[in-house]
Design a binder for these strands. Structure first.
Length: 543
RNA sequence: CGGAGAGUAGCGCAGCGGUAGCGCGCACGGUUUGGGACCGUGAGGUCGCCGGUUCAAAUCCGGCCUCUCCGACCA
C-alpha cells in the first residue's frame, strides 16, 4: 500500500484519556479510534492485524480438528447453549465424536466498567470453541491438544503466557486453565511458585496452611471483655495474641437470597471467588450491619458459637479453622469475645472448604516456598465443562452398546482485540510498536526520502513493485514528508523491517535495510540488479 | 453500582464575568528533505447539553449527559 493513499492517521500526542501503553500506541499509530466507552473502531492497520491473528487461530484450531461454524447471535442465549442445542439435534452416535466446533464472532458485553483501551471493552471479537466427547477420558485426552494449540497461537503472536489454574466458576468443570501474560497492565493476579512452578489465578490459588497448635488440648470456653475490639488487629493487640489465634467472621449475601456466614483464621483473608463457588452463588456481596444483626450476630463480635441455626444462614468454615485449637472468636455480644473456641465442640459448619485468598509470600501448596503475586492479562481460558450443559439440555449420544450417554464438553475462548493489545504491551519501545512478524500489518516499510528526486522515486517504485511480486506486504511511504516524519511513523506503526531509499542509495547503489526489533542495519547493494536484491532480501529476512 | 477527576478546533492545552486563544495537525504558495524543517497566507469552535443569575456567561448557580481513573464481573 502507498502510505499516501492509506488511512493511517498517526498522532504526535496520545489522547489524554488513554492510560495504558498499548492504548496510547494503538491510537497514536493509527490502528484504532475510540467511539464510546469500551467501543473502538479498527482502522485499516488494526483490521489487518486482527485478520492476521484470526488466521493464526483458524490454522491452529483446524490443525486439531476444529471446524468453524457461525452460531446466531442470541439475545440472551449463551453460546454454550446454542452449540449444545446444535449438537443435540445433529449428533446421535459415539462414532461422530469427538467433535470440535469453533467460531470467531463479535461479542457484546454490557461491561459495567470498560478500561485500558482494548484490554477490556464492550464489543470485541472472540474465538469461542466447544468440544464434545463420549467420555471424561476422551475429554481428558483432548484437553492437552487444545492447550498446545493455544500455546502455539500465542507463541506465533509473539507471546509467552503463563498457564495457570483458572477459576472453574459455577460451571464447575474439573479442570480450568488460563493463559496469562504477565504484565502490569493486567487486571488479574496470578500466584506463582518459582520453586515448583505452581501457578494459579490468585482468586482460586491454594496455600499451604500449617496449623499453629493442632495438639493443644481443648480448653473450656471463656467469655472475655474486649471493648472496642472490632477488628482482628485490635483484638490481637488487646489480648496480646497473634492473629493466627483468632477466628474472623465475614458476612455476605449470596444471590440476594442467602446469608453466608464465613469463618476463617484471623490472619487470612477470604477469597470471594472461592466462597461464591463453595456456596454455589452467582453473585456475592458484603452483608450490611443490619443484615448481620438480623441473624443474631454482632458486627465485630460475631462467631457461629451459640448462634441459633437458621436455614437461611449458611455457615462456611475455612479448613484453617478446623485444625486449630482454642481460638478467640466473637461472643455475639457487643464488647465481648470468647476464648478457647474449638471447631466440632463449640460449633459446626454447613460446609468446610478452602476459602482463603492467597497473599504475597504465603506458602506454596505443593512445596511451601513463598508464592509471588503478579499482574497478568488473561489472553485465553480453556476448561472442562463436563456434562453441565448436556445434562441440562439432554444432549446425549448412543454408545457402542446402544445405551444413552451424556456428552462430555469442554469450552475454550480467546479475545482477539485484547490479544492485540497484549502484544503491544509486550512488544514496544519509546519509538512505538514492535510487531512480531507474523501479525505485523506489513512486512516491510519502504521509505523514499526525497520525493522530488526522480532517481529516488523511480528506484522506489521499481522496488515496490518487485517486493510485492515477491509476495511481501509493503507499506510504501511515498509522501513528500521530511525524512524524520517518515522514520518516526514507520517506527511508531511498528513494521518489522524498513528499507530506506535516499541520496546514498543513488550514489552507492545500495539501499538500507533496518530491523525494527533491535535496530540492526544492513546496506544491501543492488548493483547486480533489483531482482537480485529482492532475492537477497527475502533470504535475509530473519537473518 | 460506590468513590475521585475531566469535558474549550482533529490532538494536546490556556482563558475563569465584557464578542474565542496558543502549540501541533490541516489547506494554499515558497524554501526544504538521513530522525517529527522554515517563512507567509488561510480554513476550522452552538466553549458537552438544558435551564437560571446578570446589561453582559466559556467564566457564577442548578440539573443532566459523556469520558477517564480507583473498587464488585470477564476473553
Amino acid at each position: 500500500m502507498r502510505f499516501s493513499r492509506m488511512l493511517i492517521p498517526t498522532l504526535r500526542d496520545a489522547p489524554k484519556d488513554a492510560g495504558l501503553i498499548s492504548h496510547k500506541l494503538l491510537i497514536r499509530a493509527g490502528f484504532i479510534r475510540p467511539l464510546a466507552a469500551g467501543i473502538y473502531t479498527l482502522l485499516p492497520l488494526g483490521q489487518k492485524v486482527r485478520l492476521k491473528i484470526e488466521k493464526i487461530i483458524r490454522e491452529e484450531m483446524d490443525a486439531i480438528g476444529g471446524q468453524e461454524i457461525s452460531l446466531p447471535v442470541g439475545v440472551a442465549t449463551p453460546h454454550e447453549e446454542a452449540v449444545t442445542d446444535l449438537v443435540r439435534r445433529e449428533i446421535r452416535s459415539y462414532r461422530q465424536v469427538p467433535l470440535v466446533l469453533y467460531q470467531i464472532q463479535t461479542k457484546f458485553r454490557d461491561e459495567p466498567r470498560p478500561r485500558g483501551g482494548l484490554i477490556r471493552v464492550r464489543e470485541f471479537t472472540m474465538k469461542d470453541a466447544y468440544s464434545f466427547h463420549s467420555s471424561e477420558d476422551d475429554l481428558d485426552a483432548f484437553y492437552p491438544k487444545i492447550r498446545q494449540a493455544y500455546e502455539k497461537i500465542f507463541r506465533r503472536c509473539g507471546l509467552e503466557p503463563v498457564i495457570v489454574q483458572g477459576d472453574p466458576g459455577l460451571i464447575g468443570g474439573k479442570d480450568s486453565h488460563e493463559f496469562m501474560l504477565l504484565s502490569d497492565a493486567g487486571e488479574d493476579q496470578v500466584a506463582l511458585c518459582e520453586q515448583c512452578r505452581y501457578a494459579a489465578n490468585r482468586e482460586i490459588a491454594q496455600i499451604f496452611k500449617a496449623s499453629v497448635n493442632p495438639t493443644e488440648p481443648m480448653l473450656p470456653l471463656e467469655e472475655v471483655a474486649t471493648p472496642g475490639c472490632e477488628s482482628i488487629q485490635a483484638l490481637a493487640e488487646f489480648l496480646k495474641i497473634t492473629p493466627e489465634r483468632t477466628a474472623k467472621a465475614v458476612f455476605s449475601i449470596a444471590d440476594e437470597r442467602d446469608f453466608v456466614f464465613a469463618l476463617i483464621r484471623g490472619d487470612l483473608e477470604v477469597s470471594e471467588t472461592k466462597l461464591a463457588n463453595t456456596v454455589g452463588a452467582r453473585t456475592l456481596r458484603p452483608a450490611t450491619g443490619a443484615e448481620i444483626r438480623s441473624i443474631g450476630a454482632v458486627p465485630g463480635y460475631a462467631s457461629p458459637v451459640g448462634l441459633s441455626r437458621q436455614s437461611a444462614v449458611k455457615i462456611v468454615v475455612d479448613d484453617s479453622i478446623v485444625h486449630e485449637r482454642n481460638l478467640v472468636s466473637g461472643a455475639n455480644k457487643e464488647g465481648f469475645h470468647l476464648r478457647n473456641v474449638n471447631y466440632g465442640r463449640d460449633f459446626i459448619a454447613d460446609v468446610v472448604a478452602d476459602i482463603a485468598l492467597v497473599r504475597e509470600g504465603d506458602p506454596c501448596p505443593n512445596c511451601q516456598s513463598p508464592l509471588i503475586l503478579k499482574n497478568a492479562i488473561e489472553l485465553g481460558h480453556i476448561f472442562k465443562l463436563g456434562t453441565r450443559y448436556s445434562e441440562a439440555m439432554g444432549a446425549k449420544i448412543l454408545t457402542q452398546d446402544a445405551s444413552e450417554k451424556l456428552l462430555v464438553m469442554g469450552c475454550y475462548g480467546i479475545g482477539i482485540e485484547r490479544l492485540m493489545a497484549a502484544v503491544v504491551e509486550a512488544h514496544h519501545d519509546e519509538q512505538g510498536i514492535i510487531w512480531p512478524e507474523e501479525i505485523a500489518p506489513f512486512h516491510i516499510a519502504l521509505l523514499v526520502l526525497n520525493t522530488d528526486r526522480t532517481e529516488q522515486t523511480e528506484l522506489a517504485e521499481k522496488l515496490y513493485a518487485l517486493l510485492r511480486v515477491a509476495g511481501l506486504e509493503v507499506l510504501y511511504d511515498d509522501r513528500s514528508e521530511s525524512a524524520g516524519v517518515k522514520f518516526n511513523d514507520a517506527d511508531l506503526i511498528g513494521v518489522p523491517y524498513r528499507i530506506v531509499i535516499g541520496s546514498r542509495s543513488i550514489t552507492n547503489k545500495t539501499i538500507e535495510l533496518k530491523r525494527r526489533r533491535d535496530g540492526a542495519k544492513r546496506e544491501l547493494s543492488y548493483a547486480q540488479g533489483l531482482e537480485a536484491l529482492v532475492h537477497t532480501l527475502k533470504a535475509e529476512r530473519g537473518w
